[in-house]
Amino acid sequence: MPDTSAAIREETTSADAPLLAIRNLSKHYHTPGGTVHAVEDVSLDIPRGSITGLVGESGSGKTTLGRTLLRLVSPTAGTIRFGGAELTTLSDREMVAMRKRMQIIFQDPVSSLNPRLKVEHIVAEGLRAHAVGNRGERRDRVAALLEEVGLSADQMKRYPHEFSGGQRQRIGIARALALEPEFIVADESVSALDVSIQAQILNLLLDLRDRRNLTMLFIAHDLSVVDYLCDRIAVMYLGRIVETGPARDLARAPAHPYTRALLSAVPQPDPTLARSRDVLEGSIPSPLDPPSGCVFRTRCPRALPACAERFPAPFAIGPGRHAHCINLEVS
């Protein structure tokens, strides 16, 4: 398999080494119907102290990539360097210690919280698992965390069903923060919330990033949300990263046809504003049988015969910006 990360690696120096450096990462699932190519040959840097957005249609492999980075599922191939440690070679015992440094905020604020436990026990679950503090110290820690995420300490004796959706997501965030992690995967963490509540949670994540110098991978399908929250964006299609770059640059001038189609589908608040649409025909192919070459070619309005032969290497289109498209290479 060719190393498609070469262009990205050349831009990374020891002075600005990312917290996570992912190289040629793949995750396959073997099923009776064949091999599911959930993540395929992904190379990506996640800078320390930044929020990187990961966007794409449902079924593009975003959640699988996020969980693979946390070693919640084991990769099929590739490397994941986290703060200098190679996660793919760590034993289960070594990963237990690493879990304190990396956490996840789940998409559904209802099903991700145990309805039989009070908030105090939910938030303190990681503290107990890692034997952090005594019972009184853990209770004080939970109280401080609830205050930090916009709840009150006296709510720790309640059950999840006594809270609204936004409040439940704040509980999930407090649980993720309990072990003082360096890196958090936020998996569609606002998609189940009302728009007004989404804004509150996004602002909370920004505040937490600044106060704690957190590094985040924010998984979403709404590019307008990602543009507001994130420093960088990676666009994923059928298990592949097709474009990466600074959020503002990518949102204002997308280079890949798939990114342009995603941006053109974002609703505009002004219905009188004239706009063009890049409408994609057909559905995303099955990861059981992905197209040869460029996986987007079956829906791409600019596909060339050469697109069926290989997946394009990352093409540099500006500082920190890359896109995988043969059209960019030949233009």
Rank of each mutant, 00 (worst) to 15 (best):
S26I: 03
R252V: 07
S43M: 06
Q169I: 08
C300H: 01
A6K: 13
R48E: 13
H322T: 03
M216S: 02
E188G: 09
Q155N: 06
E57D: 04
S276P: 01
P75V: 06
M95T: 10
V39M: 09
V119K: 00
T63G: 03
Y237P: 10
H30C: 00
G293E: 03
L273W: 05
F82H: 12
Y237E: 09
E57T: 05
A261C: 13
R48T: 11
G150Q: 10
I219Q: 03
A274E: 14
H130S: 08
I201E: 03
S5F: 03
V96W: 13
V36P: 11
R128H: 12
R9T: 12
L273F: 09
S276Y: 00
P314R: 07
A38N: 08
L262W: 00
R321F: 07
D108G: 07
S111L: 06
I326M: 08
A7Y: 12
T272R: 14
F311R: 02
L25R: 09
V295S: 04
D187Q: 07
A274K: 15
A153Q: 13
G61W: 14
I8R: 11
R138E: 02
H30L: 01
S43A: 10
R310P: 00
L262D: 02
T52Q: 08
P290T: 00
A178N: 03
V73G: 00
G282H: 02
